[in-house]
Design a protein around this nucleic acid. Structure first.
Lengths: 106, 106
DNA sequence: TGTAATACATCGTAACACGAAGTATTGAAT
DNA sequence: ATTCAATACTTCGTGTTACGATGTATTACA
């Protein structure tokens, strides 16, 4: 997928990946894989950014003697998802503009 | 509209704005206004980038004693639009993932 | 013993949208 | 006659961001 196109989607994808239950880095990558591929360096950068923006909170917990950082979505994070959905109308109208005049007729 | 979301759309928008006939900078901005707003500095940067990528060609012509640069889409430019359309399935699947579990029922 | 998988972190880089500022012309309003 | 908006294009600097490369450390299986 085009890297520029990803930019507007990744943040929201990560938030969506934790919106129905806390999750941690490595698992988020796996869960998102069917939709978008992202590297670890990308993910952890995003998680830090979202934490700094108070869109999620972090909790460190031990799992099988190994530390995991669990991420929990906040109200602001859910709001971010809502904003994204509200912008979708504009995205669709842009897609239609680009697609104009070639609606795969029959 | 979120600036990051724009990133994946602007190039294709500009190409779409000239795909049915040559156009020039100032007019492209006006034509796109109903769909996306972009500043002059942004547009001219994009036009240069697309020209460097051979996705469009430029022709300078005089209009009312003033110079205008007309942009013409190339086969590569049309190909870029096609690529965008092909990626749309992925974008939709991402949107559905984000939207999961809240399909505004009734 | 080795090597894949799990789990997180840091650094540097290149791409990119944008505001600010500038140049220059035309045309309408004061 | 002068001011100001609109037309038309250009350059510069900046902040955001995805990513590859690299590193650390543990568990589990061959």
């Amino acid at each position: 997928m085009d890297i520029q196109l990803k930019r507007g989607l990744l943040d929201v994808c990560v938030l969506a990946a934790i919106k129905n239950g806390d999750s941690y880095g490595y698992r988020i990558i796996k869960d998102l894989k069917p939709y978008v591929e992202l590297s670890e360096s990308t993910l952890y950068t995003i998680l830090k950014r979202l934490e700094a923006a108070s869109m999620l909170t972090v909790r460190t917990a031990e799992h099988d003697g190994r530390l995991r950082k669990y991420y929990h979505i906040t109200a602001a994070g859910l709001g971010r998802i809502e904003d994204f959905k509200n912008e979708w109308k504009e995205v669709i109208s842009i897609y239609q503009f680009v697609n104009e005049g070639e609606e795969t007729h029959a």
